[in-house]
Structures are given as structure tokens and as C-alpha cells.
């Protein structure tokens, strides 16, 4: 991983010519991407297009084969699975890795923010899928990261829970204003949450669309237009009105 350092010009994340090869398969080929401070970028693409690889590189869980990556030192990831330790109570799962005596207080505060003040001392197995994912969100936000990486964190949730999570994430992020990269294959989710949507194909960015404020309301003509454009870029022929990328 390239040394974490603040990138110039307000860019929290600066990626240049990023290449990653697994065996004889090139997953990322010369990818460039900037994310500004406080900007929410959604990354969409088919399964296996390299979007998770990119996220793992940004998280420091993988090393690039070429190019440079500049990221802030304080990074956190919310994964698709909650990844809570079943043998630690909820608040300890939030406070994991925190030092100091006020770790519990910070964890309790973060849990209250995600609406789980009642579950501070519960065991993770007693939580529902949505609650566990909210704990994972609290675990990420309690550290006040400069870069928040979301790896399809809502994909395993039911539709109603997902809508609630979207609202929660928007509210929490508005307060801390980290740079956010959301990896998803749900085009609707990308439009509703992000300031900018980038589509990935064949290991590089294929297109990028700023999301106008009017498009963040489902059912608006701007929403429909942007959605159609993004789906077209992903090579999905929109037959019905409610097609999402698989």
C-alpha cells in the first residue's frame, strides 16, 4: 500500500494508474479515481468487474501491482456481512481496537446513534440481520474515519430494512462528512445515496455521472434518466420499469 497521506487539492483519495493482477487475470488496469473530502461516490458494475478488489486496496487489505494509491490514515470498512465477534457483547464489538477508558462511552454513544441503545450488552446472536449491520455501521463510525468504505453493506438485508438503512447512513454521514466509497450492484441505491456514480467495466472506470439533487427522489424524471443511462453503460437492456442490475 502506498503511504497514507493527505492528497493535495482537497482530494481525500487519489488513485493513479492502479493495476492489480491475480495470476493471469488482470482485474484492475490503470484505474484513476479521486474522491474529495466529504464526497459520496458509488461504484457500480457487474460481479467480478473488480470493484471489490478496488475497495480492498483502498482498505489496505490488498497490495497493488502498479500505480499509486493515496488514502487518509483513518479508514473503516463496512462489509456485506456484519463480521461481529459472536463471543463479544455488542458494545465491545463497537469498541474493538479503541484504546482508553472512554471506549465504552464512545461505543454506547455510537450505538445510540444507530438506534441500538437497548442492545449495548446483548450478544450478537440475539440481533436481527438489520440490527447487526447497524452495529457494524456504529463500529465504523465510532472511529470517525476520513474514508468510509462500504462493500455492498445492504445487499443481504430485506427491502424494508434496506430503505431504513439508507436513511440512517445518509443522516450519519451528513454529520461526520467522511469521503465515502460505496460498492454496490444496485443502481437505485447508488443514485439515492451518492453525489457521484461511477461505473466500472473491464478493470477500469467506464463512465461517471454526478447525481443532481433532483435525481435523489425515486420516481422523479431525473432519477429515471440517470438510471437508464447507468444501466445502458452496464449493458443492461431495460425491458421493464423496475430492472436492477443482477
Amino acid at each position: 500500500m502506498t503511504a497514507p497521506a493527505a492528497a493535495p487539492g482537497g482530494a481525500e483519495v487519489q488513485i493513479r494508474g492502479l493495476t492489480r493482477v491475480f495470476g493471469d487475470r488482470t482485474v484492475l488496469t490503470g484505474l484513476d479515481l479521486d474522491i474529495r473530502r466529504g464526497e459520496f461516490v458509488a461504484l457500480i458494475g457487474h460481479s467480478g468487474c473488480g470493484k471489490t478488489t478496488l475497495l480492498r486496496l483502498l482498505a489496505g487489505l490488498d497490495r497493488p501491482d502498479g500505480g499509486t494509491v493515496r488514502v487518509p490514515p483513518a479508514r473503516m470498512v463496512v462489509f456485506q456481512e456484519h463480521r461481529l465477534l459472536p463471543w463479544r457483547r455488542v458494545w465491545r464489538n463497537v469498541a474493538i481496537g479503541l484504546r482508553g477508558k472512554d471506549a465504552r462511552a464512545a461505543a454506547v454513544r455510537a450505538l445510540a446513534e444507530v438506534g441500538l441503545a437497548d442492545h449495548v450488552d446483548s450478544w450478537p446472536r440475539t440481533l436481527s440481520g438489520g440490527e447487526a449491520q447497524r452495529v457494524a455501521l456504529a463500529r465504523a463510525l465510532v472511529r470517525e474515519p476520513q474514508l468510509l468504505l462500504l462493500d455492498e453493506p445492504f445487499a443481504a438485508l430485506d427491502a424494508l430494512t434496506r430503505i431504513k438503512m439508507h436513511a440512517l447512513v445518509r443522516r450519519l454521514i451528513a454529520r461526520q462528512r467522511p469521503a465515502v466509497l460505496l460498492v454496490t450492484h444496485d443502481v437505485d441505491e447508488a443514485i439515492l445515496l451518492a453525489d457521484r456514480v461511477v461505473a466500472m467495466r473491464g478493470g477500469r472506470l467506464a463512465a461517471e455521472h454526478p447525481v443532481p439533487a433532483e435525481a435523489t427522489r425515486r420516481g422523479s424524471p431525473e432519477f429515471a434518466r440517470l438510471r437508464a443511462a447507468l444501466l445502458a453503460e452496464l449493458g443492461v437492456e431495460e425491458a421493464a420499469d423496475d430492472v436492477t442490475v443482477p
Binding site: 482498505a59 489496505g60 487489505l61 479508514r75 473503516m76 470498512v77 462489509f79 456481512e81 463480521r83 465477534l85 474493538i96 481496537g97 463500529r139 472511529r143
Partner: peptide
Amino acid sequence: PKLLEMSRVVGQGRLE
């Protein structure tokens, strides 16, 4: 291994 990865993400050292 996903839990081990999470431990790395939150910055735990080997002993922790």
C-alpha cells in the same frame, strides 16, 4: 478469515 480481516481493519495488533 473474514473476522481476522475485520480485526486488521480496526487496527488490532497481532497480540490483540
